[in-house]
Amino acid sequence: MNILTVPVAVLRLQYKIVRIPLQLVEDQLISRLATESPARLRYERTLGVLDGAVGIALGDSDTERRGNALTERSDALARAVELEQHAARTEAAADTELETKRTEVHEQQVAAIEAKQRDVEQARHREDERKQAAERDAEQRKQAAKKQADQLAAQRTRVVEAEYRAEQIKIWEAEQKAAAPAKAQLKEAADRQDEAADKRARADHVEKLAEAEKSKRSTETTANGKP
């Protein structure tokens, strides 16, 4: 037996003895943790590095392989956990960004709908104002046309009345002109009638005077005794 073999064998035995409580901790405590628990992964990696280093130092290939395997497993799980956490963070960030985008899109949609409603209300308001303005304009034109028609009718009425008065004057002048000879004849006849009446009155007066004179003479004759 090589003299160096004895101390190495002793060291291997001592390491196995030292590792017993570590294995107990792993079996009784660490194994109860979740497989991907950070504390378990750190512990297992530390134990694996220790096994690997001791295995190399002592020339114990089994311990070295066990330590390397435990280290690689711990590293792989840690990387997987890290990737999962990164993926979870990325997914959470993506969800947050998606929710933010959804919120922004919803707000934009709401703003667009509100803006559209405002545009519709403004368009309706402008249309109402246009209709009211058109109605006022139509009413003004109607009133202006009525006023103009009334003025024209009044003007025509005045013209017709003036023409009627002129025609009446012409008729009256024609009647006067036509009646002038008749009036002259009537006046002449009236004058003659007045003259005849005057003559008749004078004749009656003379006759009455003659009768009176005659009656007077008759009375005087009777008074003087003459037959």
Rank of each mutant, 00 (worst) to 15 (best):
T96P: 00
D60A: 13
I169H: 08
V110D: 14
V160R: 15
A182G: 09
A184W: 06
V160E: 15
V81G: 03
T103D: 02
E127R: 13
E107G: 01
L47W: 00
H125P: 01
A53R: 05
A123D: 12
Y43S: 07
N68V: 12
V120P: 00
E173N: 08
E139H: 10
L209V: 15
Q143G: 00
R32F: 02
D198E: 15
I113D: 14
G67T: 02
E44H: 05
Q148I: 03
E44C: 07
P38L: 03
A88C: 03
Q132D: 05
A9F: 00
E99A: 12
L98D: 09
M1Q: 06
A179W: 03
A153I: 05
E91K: 10
D27N: 10
L152N: 08
E163W: 06
K146T: 11
A80V: 08
Q109K: 14
A184V: 13
K216S: 05
A212W: 03
D51C: 08
V159R: 14
S218V: 07
A178S: 11
K208Y: 05
A93K: 04
V160P: 02
E220F: 06
R19L: 01
K116V: 03
L186G: 01
G59A: 08
Q193G: 02
E97R: 07
A154C: 00
A179R: 07
T63P: 00
A94Q: 09
T221R: 13
T71P: 00
E161P: 03
V25T: 03
A149T: 13
D62Q: 08
E107T: 03
K226H: 07
D60E: 08
V206E: 05
H106N: 12
A189I: 05
E107R: 12
E161C: 07
R217A: 13
K208W: 04
Q185A: 11
A162M: 08
Q28F: 01
A182S: 14
E84A: 15
I20H: 11
H106Q: 12
K147W: 06
R130N: 04
E135Q: 13
H86D: 09
D75W: 00
K147F: 05
W172N: 15
D95I: 12
V8G: 00
